[in-house]
Design a protein around this nucleic acid. Sequence first.
DNA 1: TTATGGTTTAACCATTTGGTTAACAAAAGT
DNA 2: ACTTTTGTTAACCAAATGGTTAAACCATAA
Lengths: 204, 204
Amino acid sequence: MAKTNKNIDTEGQILDAAKNVFQKKGMDGARMQEIANEAGINKAMLHYYYRSKQLLFEAVFSNAFSLLAPQLNKILNDDSSIEDKVKNFTHNYISFITKHPYLPNFIIQELNRNPKFFEKIQQNTAFPTLEKFKNQVTAEVEKGILKPIDGEQLFINIISLNIFPFIATPLIKGFLKIDDKGFKQLMEQRKTAVSEFIINSIKK
Amino acid sequence: MAKTNKNIDTEGQILDAAKNVFQKKGMDGARMQEIANEAGINKAMLHYYYRSKQLLFEAVFSNAFSLLAPQLNKILNDDSSIEDKVKNFTHNYISFITKHPYLPNFIIQELNRNPKFFEKIQQNTAFPTLEKFKNQVTAEVEKGILKPIDGEQLFINIISLNIFPFIATPLIKGFLKIDDKGFKQLMEQRKTAVSEFIINSIKK
DNA sequence: TTATGGTTTAACCATTTGGTTAACAAAAGT
DNA sequence: ACTTTTGTTAACCAAATGGTTAAACCATAA
């Protein structure tokens, strides 16, 4: 950062515009010209600041990923009980994604396109691990707080229930015959419906 | 079909090749030349049989969708109890997708790219509706078989738990630090783990 | 004031890409 | 046999696209 000349924050404007375009259209569907238009600047600036489409994309991607990672940390590395974690995570995550609706699909899509991205990310960002969560589930099962369940499966279940509707939004809208407003209401309900559903299943 | 000339089934070969390429790379990432190579024929043939990339893509898409729709019918329009439906669907769906791993991501991704596709599909394919399932849930709740739960939310939960891991495969592999083999094992476990998880939550 | 160096732009370039064409080959029809 | 129709190919084309360049711009330090 700390640019010297007339520019105030062109680099940031570019990143913002790139975020919008890449998240909507993906790496392959995005056009450098469209990003430039969205940022209101000359296309050459994109290359001046980010060298190539690939590098600009990676900047956007790790930026997006580092937004999402802390969300997962709340369920993986927090000291409350599993029940509280589930309640908090579900509530927080759905609120969070409602503000960033393109994020989960963007990340998952581009991770599918190039699974090696994951390794790149693991090195750069502080990356949450599953160990603590698994141990905690085992412990709470042994204590008789939870019914017997595998920690890994429970983790997958929790993120499936929370993330999937935001990835499959058009599918859900289609099946349920609802519009944007109806979808938002449904997700609002899910803040409690999902955590109840999970707790019902695992609590003894 | 029933082509008259020397060709045996070029049209089918093209569709197969297109399926592979489109499902791996998406509409934007796919190249007509790559499809032609995969099919082992001249690129002009793609246009001879399907006119344009868009039309070829739509052929692949509705083909894929009509594979997936009957799977959903098993949970939406079947006469068994909700409990049996959940058990059967979970088991069948995971088996089915293990054989077609790219399918769910392909459909969801392209539906996100162009939500209007959904309307097109609804006209062409026999399209499962949610009404029966919702009524059945309401009925079983009233009878005291199930704990109170909204039918729409339950439906979303069921498909989330079943579909999500196959869409977010690289993410899950990364978090759980497992390879292909480990992932398959985990999905095999899910055939029972998921239905138990759901039944535990909803059965009175 | 003027030299300096980062910033910005319009024009340009090479390559890729979806799509077309014209000629040719193989059947099918007569 | 030969004509017509259908299938197949190589060569070609125009548009789009990521990227480059050289000149202009402009804030600031000397």
